[in-house]
Design a protein around this nucleic acid. Structure first.
Lengths: 337, 337
DNA sequence: CTGAAAGCGCTTACAG
DNA sequence: CTGAAAGCGCTTACAG
């Protein structure tokens, strides 16, 4: 009965009497239109699928939150598909699962190689947007941070504090070095500082802890830029456990402004980024594409230094002018070069 | 052409020649069966919707991870629907969004009042399972922790350490006090200890910090059980900022075993729970229901004490036997009673 | 083994 | 304003 459809959709030409009867029946029977049938006939898909390798890490989870918020506003449902670490198989399986559903489009969290591969495995024709950047892959709209600029700024900040150089513990990056790592390197080079070897971590604080243990026994480390805050947490802990004081002996700076950064001991200096905004932007890109067809675009979101207490001047060798009234010289180490 | 369908589904009776031709065509055209049409005719729905008030908090995000893992294994797609804080409207809107899609069933994260209301708003007939517990609502299968037992055990542990009583900063609980709070209270009563007034926090470390500030100026506080680890992080920080030492002056115990608990300063003693397992169980309950119709059941998962360094004996008044070689007596306060 | 036929539950023109 | 008719893209029996 088309009338029912008209009533439910709110199309004008229905008599009051009919409308009431229909509504009553709907109410009584608990009738719900079949979503699959509706999609089939209208062709309007309302599911947006997010493909990601992880759902719980800070940056990932917060981006998803932003996507979901914006999707809800737009009347879209968000589906999550996780690509477990593993071979190409996993990527193909995830893509199949997604395409088996009536999805309107896909947003890929391109923070790591898994994401990059997923983008490449997605068929042309399907609307796609990405959060995060990789160099590889086809041209699609991307919501991203200017990681490179962030890496530069953080490094310059540390250099400006008087550190001779800055060590770096990096996040994986998707394919090649992450933008943060690139920015760090270029800042060092511009300043004519030595570029120490990068320590590779994954996104976890555990991996940061391990890197911290290495740094603790590396001579000349007075400042460390970490690829994210979780890594920084681990680095700080490892350094402390090794008898070093933060920031008197070593300054540590993170990335992301994790919710616990301000509560850390010491409170963590970090590069703040708005992941929720990032997710919202990606969804907006996807919706635009749904409406008007493809249109590759890119939006670097802002990033800013949040100075807290994990960073300061390098340890002095004389008693002159140590930062923050710190005791000086305990375990002081020579500056590099 | 039914043959195409047969080939794609792998039904046996198809000649090799036909099969090859079909596969070639599919390959060339990039053909993908329309999910909506398939759902319509088969009636097999493959979307499981998760309704939750939050996607990023540790317990929530980790439960969702478990649900997603199990769903993927079962060939189901997970959709996320968030109920923003707000009136009943939000709950109704979320339910409408979910029911507008061809969903097989729903899993509600019933950690808070929003979840509880969502369960009540869901129509009968739709398969539903929950993660977490509330007293209210209809009988549905639930995957949950024995929070009450956990609260008891944690409290008894602290009492066993010699504390005269245990203060408590609680998570919201859905409707009435959380099981953790109930367990804490009962342990105190069984032991004949005074039951201090509960401090209410939300799930954030910020709210824990504020509670910690209150506790710092409350006389007689030597042990604090927190509703979750994030709260414990905030409490510890506030206590430390107020000049108290953990655990020498005050012991703090959390709940959940957050990934950063072991890295905290001091490393946090907590009640460990497996949220991933919880999510998996909920999905299994839902699948059972899909297959065999309704069958209310409940599974309390295990919970165990993870003793780290944020807890110890109460501050001694004499120099006899302080724990962990701690300096004693700085800011010692009288025991309650 | 392989097509023609019917039908899943809706919505969209189309006649009344 | 309101029904009968057609069709969305598949799959499932059903005849060849």
């Amino acid at each position: 009965m088309p009338t029912v459809s008209r009533v439910l959709k709110g199309s004008p030409p229905v008599s009051q009497r009919k409308r009431d009867r229909v509504l009553a029946a709907v109410q009584e029977l608990g009738y719900r239109p079949n979503g699959a049938a509706r999609m089939l006939v209208t062709g309007r898909r309302t599911i947006v699928s997010v493909i990601t390798s992880n759902t719980t890490r800070f940056g990932y989870a917060t981006s998803i939150q932003g996507i979901e918020e914006a999707a809800r506003t737009a009347g879209l449902l968000v589906a999550i598909t996780v690509i477990d670490p593993g071979g190409e198989d996993e990527v193909a399986a995830a893509v199949d699962l997604v395409l088996g559903q009536p999805v309107a489009g896909v947003i890929v969290l391109d923070f790591d190689p898994q994401g990059t591969r997923a983008i490449e495995a997605l068929p042309e024709g399907l609307p796609v947007a990405a959060v995060g950047s990789s160099d590889v892959g086809r041209e699609i709209p991307r919501a991203l941070f200017d990681d490179r600029l962030g890496g530069r700024q953080a490094t310059q900040y540390l250099l400006g504090l008087g550190h001779a150089t800055v060590h770096h513990v990096s996040v994986p990056g998707s394919g090649r070095p992450s933008g943060r790592t690139l920015g760090w390197r270029s800042a060092l080079e511009s300043a004519g500082a030595v570029v120490p070897e990068t320590l590779e971590a994954d996104w976890t604080s555990q991996s940061g802890y391990e890197a911290g243990l290495v740094l603790a026994r590396t001579p000349g480390v007075t400042a460390v830029l970490c690829g994210n805050d979780e890594i920084a947490f681990g680095v700080i802990k490892a350094l402390q456990v090794s008898g070093l004081r933060i920031p008197q002996d070593v300054s540590v700076v993170g990335f992301d402004d994790h919710p616990l950064a301000a509560l850390w001991t010491p409170p963590l200096t970090t590069m703040g980024q708005d992941f929720v905004e990032l997710g919202r932007t990606a969804l907006a890109f996807l919706v635009e594409q749904l409406d008007e067809g493809p249109g590759p675009q890119t939006s670097p979101s802002t990033i800013h230094l949040i100075e807290r207490e994990s960073s300061g001047p390098p340890p002095a060798r004389s008693v002159t002018g140590p930062a923050r009234g710190a005791r000086v010289g305990r375990r002081a180490r020579p500056r590099p070069r």
